[in-house]
């Protein structure tokens, strides 16, 4: 199995606080990995390291075998173009409407003609339940709607790799379910690699291919989600106990 993203001995500190402590982990091609961990453990920081929005203090991060720390601006843009990213706070551009936000990657990164642009953006709006809200500005949206706009923007170019930072936090369970359903459907269709960050263990947990638990600067990889329950690491046992409520949703239910 080929790794799309590899952390090699990555250390990240802020002042005296060590966020990642010699982390080695691989994210597999075409698979869904959930990164779970408590608040403030460094999940969002890990995503930013993958995108080189932050730099590690030591260690390397490879994307498709390329060490991203050495890339020129142009090559870095090329690597970044492989990603579709949902930020934790959505990071929509305030000065643009919902419609323009979703259209932005299409406008800037492709030569899509006006008709195609309109049809693709309208389709994305419909997919994420945003039809009729295209003319609103981000400040006029609820938190959950912003998330959905962010998801629509992140996926509009059918990226190779998606990074979703807490995609369903703040959404009601029904919509969260709809989004996961859409997500797994499109993943099967396009076969992208996905990394989903979550501060607890999401309901659709067992549909992930692998799970990484981030705790105290260490990432622990579980080949199968259900293996977490059998972990004997006290920290992980505690985390599981605290966050696993009615976790198990079966594929049929979804």
């Amino acid at each position: 199995m080929t790794a799309v993203i590899r952390f090699i001995d990555v250390v990240k500190k802020f002042g005296h606080q060590t966020i990642l402590d010699h982390v080695n982990v691989e994210f597999l091609k075409g698979k869904t990995t959930v990164i779970a961990g408590g608040s403030g453990q460094g999940k969002s920081v890990s995503l930013k390291l993958i995108l080189r929005l932050m730099e590690p203090d030591s260690g390397k991060i490879l994307v498709d075998g390329v060490d991203i720390s050495r890339l020129s601006r142009k090559d870095l843009d090329e690597v970044r173009a492989k990603f579709g990213v949902l930020f934790q706070g959505s990071a929509l551009l305030d000065s643009m409407t919902v419609w323009e936000n979703i259209a932005l990657p299409l406008r800037e990164r492709t030569r899509a003609k006006k008709d195609e642009l309109i049809s693709r953006v309208d389709k994305a709006l419909a997919q994420f339940g945003l039809s009729g809200h295209g003319d609103k500005f981000p400040a006029q949206l609820s938190g959950g709607m912003k998330k959905r706009v962010g998801l629509a923007r992140a996926t509009i170019l059918n990226p190779d790799i998606v990074l979703f930072d807490e995609p369903t936090t703040g959404l009601d369970p029904q919509i969260a379910m709809d989004i996961y359903r859409l997500f797994f459907k499109t993943q099967q269709e396009f076969g992208y690699t996905s990394i989903i960050v979550s501060h607890d263990i999401p309901k659709v947990f067992n549909l992930a291919d692998q799970v990484v638990i981030l705790n105290d600067g260490k990432m622990t990889l579980f080949e199968r989600p259900e293996n977490i329950q059998h972990s004997t690491d006290p920290l992980i046992m505690k985390f599981v106990e605290q966050t696993m409520g009615d976790v198990y949703t079966s594929s049929e239910e979804l």
């Binding site: 930013k48 995108l51 929005l53 843009d77 090329e78 970044r80 173009a81 990603f83 990213v85 930020f87 706070g89 990071a91 929509l92 551009l93 305030d94 000065s95 932005l104 990657p105 800037e108 990164r109």
Partner: peptide
């Protein structure tokens, strides 16, 4: 103020990720 708010709400990061 506009740029400061954009920075704090990660809008610059988002642009960079879209290679803009």
């Amino acid at each position: 103020a506009e740029l400061g708010i954009m920075r704090n709400s990660e809008q610059f990061d988002a642009l960079e990720c879209m290679a803009i």
